[in-house]
């Protein structure tokens, strides 16, 4: 028996315990596409693509500063919430379907304990953040909504990283940082949102894809 055998064995045990309890069915390509989706959606709202031609001529900055007729502002707000909800729902559906496919391929049931722990640790901060954002909207503090989504999303990522990819932790810290910076630039919050939910997901998706999926 070689002298380093016990160390090798303990290393193997630790690796397998960690690998078998972490949720790793996230598809990198799916994350990449949700990033693209977020960028398209947010750009539509921020740059008024498609809306400027309508009679409803309210820009994002106008909404934040509440500079306009209340009904027009309310319409713009509804559009914004509609687009954001569409992005969120389609992103979740894309992630779920690809995770299901990936788990089938690897013979690992999707609904195991690591999956439910990941979901729980991600969605508790997200739900709290969602309710908080609705309260912000209710109080007409629209400018803080985009930074708040980034901050709560960052918290969710950091807590879920313990049960899933380690890289989620760094993504979480970055989203937190973005959220706080965005709080200083109210009115440009959506630009930070495009970075945090768009560009970050595109890079993160590619990282996961090339580091784990392509093996």
């Amino acid at each position: 028996m070689k002298n380093n055998q016990p160390e090798n064995d303990l290393g193997l045990i630790k690796d397998l315990m960690e690998k078998s309890t972490k949720f790793s069915n996230l598809s990198g390509i799916a994350v990449f596409f949700t990033g693209i989706l977020a960028m398209i959606g947010a750009s539509f709202v921020y740059f008024d693509i498609g809306f400027s031609v309508s009679e409803l001529d309210i820009s994002y900055a106008q909404l934040i500063n509440q500079n306009g007729e209340p009904e027009d502002l309310f319409l713009k707000l509804k559009l914004l919430i509609l687009i954001a909800s569409l992005i969120l729902i389609s992103s979740i559906v894309i992630m779920y379907l690809t995770a299901l496919k990936k788990s089938g391929k690897e013979g690992i049931p999707l609904f195991n304990s690591s999956f439910s722990r990941t979901l729980k640790s991600l969605f508790i901060p997200l739900f709290a953040g969602g309710i908080f954002c609705l309260l912000l909207i209710n109080n007409h503090m629209y400018g803080l909504v985009a930074p708040a989504t980034l901050i709560f999303y960052g918290l969710g990522l950091v807590s879920s990283s313990k049960f899933s990819y380690n890289e989620l932790e760094f993504l979480g810290y970055f989203e937190l940082l973005l959220g706080f910076i965005a709080s200083f630039y109210i009115g440009s919050g959506l630009l930070f949102w495009i970075i945090g939910f768009g560009i970050c997901h595109i890079f993160f998706g590619l990282l996961i894809h090339f580091k784990y999926d392509k093996k």
């Binding site: 064995d9 193997l12 045990i13 630790k14 397998l16 315990m17 690998k19 078998s20 309890t21 690897e106 013979g107 690992i108 049931p109 195991n112 304990s113």
Partner: peptide, 26 residues
Amino acid sequence: SRVRLGLMSILSVNEWVSYKEIKNLL
């Protein structure tokens, strides 16, 4: 055997684990 060592590592931190899952992990 390292296979048996690995097998026990996986099973000791999980409830019921499928054959295919073990095969892929190892």
